[in-house]
Design a protein around this nucleic acid. Sequence first.
DNA 1: AAAACCGCGTTAGAAAACCTCACACAATTG
DNA 2: CAATTGTGTGAGGTTTTCTAACGCGGTTTT
Lengths: 112, 112
Amino acid sequence: MTNDFSYKDKKVITIGVVRDLTGLSERQIRYYEERKLIFPERSSGGSRKYSFSDVELLVEIANKIEDGVQTHEIRKEMLRAQKKQNQDDVRRKMIQGQLNAQFGLRKGPSSK
Amino acid sequence: MTNDFSYKDKKVITIGVVRDLTGLSERQIRYYEERKLIFPERSSGGSRKYSFSDVELLVEIANKIEDGVQTHEIRKEMLRAQKKQNQDDVRRKMIQGQLNAQFGLRKGPSSK
DNA sequence: AAAACCGCGTTAGAAAACCTCACACAATTG
DNA sequence: CAATTGTGTGAGGTTTTCTAACGCGGTTTT
């Protein structure tokens, strides 16, 4: 319904480009994946593919690590943030659902 | 001043991904470049890199070709469209310039 | 009609990019 | 002190990309 998922989230960038974009080494990028901080997709042949969002996230991660935060700690932060986000989403959707139940479809009876 | 150049125009996508995204063959993609319809950047090693804009453009090109339009004709169309775009840009900038000259900087004298 | 051009598919060989271990090591952390 | 962390580096292997060239059925030009 609400058109989402822009270019920002499409996983189309290979690790070499991510390296150039972030200034990180490929080793670092793969290591952060190993520590479950980032989740690239894979090509059929096995090559990693990242999104612009991933690139941004990587930069944030790198900054925190530079500040002495451990990957383990970063992961916990991320899980916490993500859980909160999910809660918020659920609430939003519930409210939307109730509104829809009350007021039905907008703009006349266009079924589909 | 006006922040531009989003993710959409960053050349970060390799030809294989473009192939998957567009459904075109690599041969076609390279051929359209040869005919000067598209202009990927190159990595230091020589690999082509495309933007999402390029991907969209490629789809348009492919559609026209399917309609029997020749690359040569498509190129002319594009040059025409681009020239017009440039003209419009110049006009817009001239007007902006005059407005600025008349009314100076907005919101108080914040020089930089 | 022969020649030239168009839009590809395909193949070949080489180079670039990427992958997974594995070892090392200084610097924490437990 | 033992274990963990974050990263460099190297080996060996696979995937991806590159250029160049031949082919080929349609069009267009000469």
